[in-house]
Design a protein around this nucleic acid. Structure first.
Length: 263
DNA sequence: GCCACCGGTGGC
DNA sequence: GCCACCGGTGGC
């Protein structure tokens, strides 16, 4: 069956197109077209693609079925630039800038710099695909601590030795949040920043990686983490046992009191 | 619970 | 009447 994924030149590198022929039912013989992002996410309509790619790629003249840009109407320059609305009249949902994450109660959109007069803007497909995001957002968590019910500060987790934070605020706790967040937001491996990001983080930082020097996880790290987990499990086990014993003792005391009263 | 697959339909 | 889009669901 026709089910091979092929490259799609009209989309950024890494995107694949697939055409699946319907095998049965009233619509047998007809086909469905799907696209796959470089990370493997499946798309089954043009609106879905537009929502995902936002301003990064102009899909106005993209034909979803063929996977080609409609001939003669090549990627125009001015279109869409300052148009928050698509030609359908509906708002283009992905053009909204993210809200700056700050302690201020006022919502402040992130400033989008689209180019300075006289500067040549290099196009970088990989970067163009990313949605705008606030850089160094970890800073806003500085000084905040989680605490238990008695408002006693909880000790933060220790990061393995040898992780070097880069950026405007090279403190260790920021790095912990950044790594935790990166692990949640992406299924890709967490490996740190490139060497160019280290030299000029403001320009070269990769927002999907935590702001730290490139690193690799060794067998030694894995073993150390296994030990940490093992210790945590043991202390949890002890706590649970102690709790169960305390409950048993408590119910014994209570039933004892009742018995004495009924006598 | 996920997702491949087909049906239904609104907009043209 | 066609078909892009998306809802629903059966099979896993």
């Amino acid at each position: 069956m026709e089910k091979r994924r092929s490259d799609c030149p009209a989309l950024p590198p890494g995107w694949k197109k697939e055409e699946v022929i319907r095998k049965s039912g009233l619509s047998a013989g007809k086909s469905d077209v799907y696209y796959y992002s470089p990370s493997g996410k499946k798309f089954r309509s043009k609106p879905q693609l537009v929502r995902f790619l936002g301003n990064a790629v102009d899909l106005s003249y993209f034909d979803f079925r063929t996977g080609k840009t409609i001939a003669g109407k090549h990627k125009g320059k001015s279109r869409q630039r300052h148009e928050p609305h698509s030609k359908s009249g509906k708002p283009d949902l992905n053009t909204a800038l993210p809200i700056r994450q700050t302690a201020s109660i006022f919502k402040q959109p992130v400033t989008k710099v689209t180019g300075h007069p006289g500067n040549k803007v290099k196009s970088d497909q990989q970067r163009a695909m990313e949605q705008p995001r606030q850089l160094f957002w970890e800073k806003r968590l500085k000084g905040l601590r989680s605490s238990d019910v008695t408002e006693e500060s909880l000790r933060a987790m220790d990061l393995p030795q040898g992780l070097h934070c880069i950026g405007p605020d090279p403190s260790e706790d920021c790095l912990l949040w950044a790594i935790a967040s990166a692990l949640h937001l992406s299924s890709a491996p967490i490996s740190g920043q490139s060497t160019s990001a280290e030299k000029n983080p403001g320009v070269w930082i990769n927002a999907s990686q935590p702001p730290c020097r490139s690193f690799s996880v060794t067998e030694q790290h894995i073993r150390e983490q296994e030990l940490v987990v093992d210790r945590a499990r043991r202390s949890l086990e002890e706590a649970l046992t102690a709790d169960t014993l305390a409950r048993i003792a408590q119910t014994k005391r209570e039933t004892g009191v009742k018995e004495r009263r009924t006598r």
